Simulated scan of single mutants.
Amino acid sequence: MTAQCRLARVATGATAVAVHVTGRDTPLAVDGDPRGAPEAGAVDLVAADGVALGRLVAHADGPVDQDLLEVAAGGVVAHWELEAARNRLFDLEDVVARGDDQLAQASGQIVHDLNNPLAAIAMCLEIAREQVEDGDLLASLLDRAAGSAERMKRMTVALNDYGQRPVAGVTDLADEVPALLREFEPLLDEVVEVVGPLPTVALSPGDVRTVLTALWENATKFRDEDSDLEVTVTAEPVRESWRVAVTDNGRGIDEADLERVFAPTVRLDKRVPGMGLGLAAVRRIVAAAGGRVGAERAPGGGTTVWFEVPGAVPPGHSSTPA
């Protein structure tokens, strides 16, 4: 909260800015020294549900920019609500112990709680950023805050993917994979090679996109920085199913972690951004379709992550798994 006070102080030109909470005698957060400086402006802090949280007070010997103070107040409220949602997010470890279904249900509610304050923060940051010149201290602070908000947004996307219920459907991978690769241009178009024909599988197009996106993003996150990234996609019939494999030449996974990586919230490298839900979402989607997943160390380094799902033949097609 002190960071929000600092942004408000720099933006408005105040001597000090403080957050006063209803029912508390001392400020919750303050930036600058308000002693000797009179109150030059104040904005009520009201949550989205109408609950009064307190006041954002600016102290200065002269007038302050009231419009920017109101923008800053919106950012304080959004940050407040975001922190509350993040606290719920940290409680996910307890939910994990009770099973994947409850985790998925909880993640959907958390995404809902995070989206509103994140949108408010992004809007406030954008408005404030338009008021300052590049190179100013405030511009640097706002850009850093915007970067943090964007990282939180990516976290909500991961949570949302995990919380989505799998939908029954059929997808021709020969059509869907090239279409998805075009969306990833130029990030993946030149590094992903499809080897051999791709089948039609009993997964909905949306679920296929979630699965393949998670696998490709993992390949880019854990690439070997000393070599160019290479990713191959292959498919082979296995009994009444198809096994689709994504192989990369990245860092690889230790043998002891090959099964553990599919558990929710597991992150093998804490330095890499993420929540550890990508492969968990893959497993959940594939299992709902009656399939299974696995990971193996690739020959020569890297990792192969595969999933098996039942085959399906749409009208006009005659090929089936052997």
Rank of each mutant, 00 (worst) to 15 (best):
residue 55 R to D: 10
residue 27 P to N: 06
residue 225 E to W: 01
residue 182 R to Y: 10
residue 30 V to I: 09
residue 96 V to P: 01
residue 296 E to C: 04
residue 171 T to I: 13
residue 12 T to R: 06
residue 201 V to T: 10
residue 42 A to V: 11
residue 254 D to F: 13
residue 139 A to L: 06
residue 232 T to W: 06
residue 227 S to K: 10
residue 85 A to R: 04
residue 230 E to C: 01
residue 183 E to R: 14
residue 166 P to A: 11
residue 40 A to P: 04
residue 127 I to H: 08
residue 38 P to G: 10
residue 178 P to C: 13
residue 281 A to L: 10
residue 22 T to K: 06
residue 102 Q to G: 09
residue 143 D to V: 00
residue 314 P to S: 14
residue 10 V to S: 07
residue 106 A to L: 00
residue 309 V to N: 09
residue 202 A to D: 14
residue 66 Q to C: 13
residue 2 T to Y: 05
residue 43 V to M: 10
residue 258 L to G: 12
residue 158 A to R: 04
residue 29 A to P: 01
residue 194 V to P: 03
residue 91 D to T: 12
residue 311 G to W: 06
residue 191 V to A: 08
residue 236 E to N: 08
residue 183 E to G: 14
residue 17 V to Y: 08
residue 300 G to R: 06
residue 191 V to L: 03
residue 195 V to I: 07
residue 275 M to N: 01
residue 100 D to G: 13
residue 134 D to T: 08
residue 11 A to E: 11
residue 122 A to I: 01
residue 46 V to C: 08
residue 257 D to I: 12
residue 77 V to T: 11
residue 276 G to Q: 04
residue 309 V to M: 10
residue 47 A to T: 03
residue 307 F to N: 01
residue 264 P to Y: 05
residue 22 T to G: 04
residue 136 D to Y: 09
residue 183 E to P: 02
residue 166 P to C: 11
residue 213 T to H: 06
residue 273 P to M: 09
residue 185 E to R: 15
residue 276 G to M: 03
residue 62 G to H: 08
residue 116 N to F: 06
residue 256 A to E: 15
residue 238 V to G: 09
residue 300 G to P: 09
residue 266 V to T: 02
residue 208 V to I: 07
residue 232 T to L: 07
residue 227 S to C: 12
residue 291 G to Y: 08
residue 246 V to S: 00
residue 207 D to Y: 15
residue 233 V to P: 03
residue 208 V to F: 13
residue 275 M to A: 02
residue 153 K to Y: 05
residue 143 D to K: 05
residue 175 D to W: 15
residue 48 A to N: 07
residue 99 G to Q: 15
residue 254 D to W: 13
residue 10 V to R: 07
residue 168 A to C: 03
residue 149 A to D: 00
residue 172 D to L: 15
residue 96 V to C: 13
residue 152 M to F: 00
residue 273 P to E: 10
residue 265 T to C: 10
residue 67 D to H: 13
residue 308 E to H: 01
residue 319 S to F: 14
residue 59 H to I: 00
residue 41 G to L: 05
residue 205 P to C: 11
residue 206 G to S: 12
residue 76 V to D: 06
residue 240 E to N: 09
residue 238 V to F: 08
residue 29 A to H: 05
residue 87 N to F: 12
residue 172 D to F: 14
residue 188 L to Y: 03
residue 145 A to K: 00
residue 17 V to S: 02
residue 304 T to C: 08
residue 258 L to N: 11
residue 90 F to N: 14
residue 322 A to M: 15
residue 282 V to R: 08
residue 237 P to W: 08
residue 148 S to D: 01
residue 62 G to N: 09
residue 234 T to M: 04
residue 79 H to I: 03
residue 52 A to G: 10
residue 68 L to N: 05
residue 131 Q to P: 01
residue 318 S to R: 15
residue 191 V to G: 04
residue 307 F to T: 02
residue 270 K to W: 09
residue 43 V to D: 12
residue 197 P to Q: 14
residue 55 R to K: 15
residue 224 D to F: 04
residue 318 S to I: 15
residue 312 A to T: 12
residue 255 E to L: 14
residue 169 G to W: 07
residue 242 W to A: 09
residue 234 T to D: 01
residue 309 V to W: 03
residue 255 E to G: 14
residue 95 V to M: 08
residue 27 P to L: 07
residue 185 E to D: 15
residue 20 H to F: 13
residue 206 G to N: 11
residue 273 P to H: 10
residue 87 N to M: 15
residue 143 D to N: 02
residue 75 G to D: 07
residue 51 V to F: 01
residue 226 D to M: 04
residue 20 H to S: 01
residue 255 E to P: 11
residue 117 P to S: 11
residue 167 V to K: 02
residue 206 G to F: 15
